[in-house]
């Protein structure tokens, strides 16, 4: 980790120092409430990397105590073979990420929450009891990535046919191709 590399400025006291508090007040509140959360400002947007275990609790916290009235979106990312992944200290990266985008109407601000989902245990707690509108979105993530949402009332495929095998947005699920047939390939011609 970065802590083991010698620092050139020589401030040895700072090696274990607490990072600067986040510039975003909601993120600061999240960090205070959920220790272990990592804050990151991505192109001017506040992002918090939270532990998978507190995913549903965080949603309740955002709605009940931080006035985040709407969950705009739940989606996922497959980071298999991702060479350029942003490396933040304190985040234990896994292959899958579940991403939530939240909007507060009264405070007119947004926050994005990201949690890591390991391949061995593809499940996250559902936030559909806090934000019923994510029902379709969580079904979509299940359908296309195979990440299950525990406690979801109706976790079924939504876009793909019911008898489809596999989860198409995974990076190891290759897009189908129709082979090119040349004229001379056809012996009956």
């Amino acid at each position: 980790m970065a802590d083991e590399t010698p620092r050139e400025d020589g401030h040895e006291d700072d090696v274990e120092a607490v990072p600067a508090p986040p510039s975003d007040e909601v993120a600061a509140a999240v960090l205070e409430r959920f220790p272990g959360t990592v804050f990151h400002e991505s192109h001017g947007q506040p992002v918090v990397y939270v532990d998978r275990a507190v995913w549903a609790e965080l949603a309740r916290f955002l709605r009940d105590e931080q006035q985040f009235t709407m969950c705009m979106d739940i989606t996922a990312v497959d980071h298999l073979l991702d060479a350029g992944r942003v490396d933040l200290p304190g985040v234990e990266y896994e292959r899958f990420e579940v991403v939530g985008n939240f909007l507060s109407h009264p405070r007119n601000r947004r926050i994005r929450t990201i949690c890591q989902v390991p391949v061995g245990e593809l499940s996250v707690a559902s936030v559909s009891d806090t934000y019923p509108g994510v029902n379709f979105a969580e079904r979509e993530v299940w359908d296309l990535y195979g990440i299950a949402f525990d406690g979801h009332p109706d976790l079924t495929r939504i876009l793909m046919p019911d008898d489809w095998v596999g989860h198409p947005l995974r990076k190891d699920d290759p897009p189908g191709r129709i082979p090119v047939t040349f004229k001379e390939d056809n012996p009956n011609r």
Binding site: R139, W142, G146, A148, H152, P153, D154, L155, T156, R157, I158, D162, V165, G166
Partner: peptide, 18 residues
């Protein structure tokens, strides 16, 4: 494994898409 995954899906479902 895929069928097992699908069965897990069915267990979690009490109201299917269809």
């Amino acid at each position: 494994e895929q069928i097992a995954g699908e069965e897990r899906l069915e267990r979690q479902t009490d109201e299917g898409a269809q």
